[in-house]
Design a protein around this nucleic acid. Sequence first.
DNA 1: CTAACACTTGTTAGTGACTAACACTGACGA
DNA 2: TCGTCAGTGTTAGTCACTAACAAGTGTTAG
Lengths: 199, 199
Amino acid sequence: MSVDESRPAGGLREERKARTRRAIREHALRLFLDGGYDETTVEQIAAAAGVSHMTFFRYFPTKEAVVEDDDYDPLIAESVRARPAAEPPMTALHRAVRTGLDTVLAADRDAVYARTRLVVTHPALRARQWRNAATTESLLARALAERAGTPVDLRLRVIAAAATAALITALTTWVDHGGADDLRTLVDEAFAALGAKPR
Amino acid sequence: MSVDESRPAGGLREERKARTRRAIREHALRLFLDGGYDETTVEQIAAAAGVSHMTFFRYFPTKEAVVEDDDYDPLIAESVRARPAAEPPMTALHRAVRTGLDTVLAADRDAVYARTRLVVTHPALRARQWRNAATTESLLARALAERAGTPVDLRLRVIAAAATAALITALTTWVDHGGADDLRTLVDEAFAALGAKPR
DNA sequence: CTAACACTTGTTAGTGACTAACACTGACGA
DNA sequence: TCGTCAGTGTTAGTCACTAACAAGTGTTAG
């Protein structure tokens, strides 16, 4: 996510790229929600966004990638590092996730729900999400390790993986109930099941 | 996996099918290990097994599916149901996984390692495995619920998901260390990180 | 034993995700 | 203002996967 600082980020090129990226993503999500994920071809998305299908793949490595939210993980990792070192790891993750969630939900709850629903519902996207979960986990494990000043070991990796699993389970339940529940309550319950102290 | 009982399972057809299925799987794994997963095409696997690529897809829904081990999950679920109802859920899962693992490892440790290595190493297979993890989880959650005589709730689902995550983390570590460690010890450590009592 | 049937397979033709190569165009630095 | 090069479109391909039909072989009723 680092931007080449030697070139001003506000140049016409950068701006254009950002706009194209946003356009592709927005049109893709709209088309997915309208006509279904499988039924929507990359060609259609590209056409809707006014680019060729090659350009699509230059911005997103796969069709699935366009649904991902890449900003969320680093945000949580950051939060983890900010937690006091004395806090038990699972509790630290819980609170970090809560913080991140509050931020994201406050911004655009409906968009988050729509996207989550898409991912949870569709097998291919779900699989993709889990693949990314591996990245999330090592990111979180490293954050935990840095916070505690210890090396990354099996214990921390398991805790990070379990926390990710808890979060995903909460998200799945959220969607299964049609978004009726309060997601934050579900997350709290999920972490409670892993023995994280609520406070 | 249920066989139509109205027809004897020992007919020529059934036998032939079983042989074809085994042939495809074995040739596929050999080719994957030899030349890499991506580099091996379904066409090549089919040719090696002496069938057309259509036949391949009639036996396995996707290229990835040929690597999966479908017998393992039900085996664990069975083990879970056999655990005493008084045992805490995470402990029950731990012991069930241990039991299943002992069985599988005793049979063909090297084959298990080779297959696990393939899956852990390759992103697409890894993703697929985790997609199945969703199935595994609901299977385990249901087993836990039946054992305790309670409905499946968020808590049980989270515990099942966390256990699966712990298992996968242990498997990943196993492969990362080149299979040098004792897998059962790793699994014990992984579950210990989730607070499962060792005994 | 044989003929009709059911099942399995191969062939062919297609779709759609994704890639490589190359030519073009326009923004940027000098 | 001009050369450079990042960003894009076009074209032509590979490969996973599917649908439709034709052909072969095990099974079974008569």
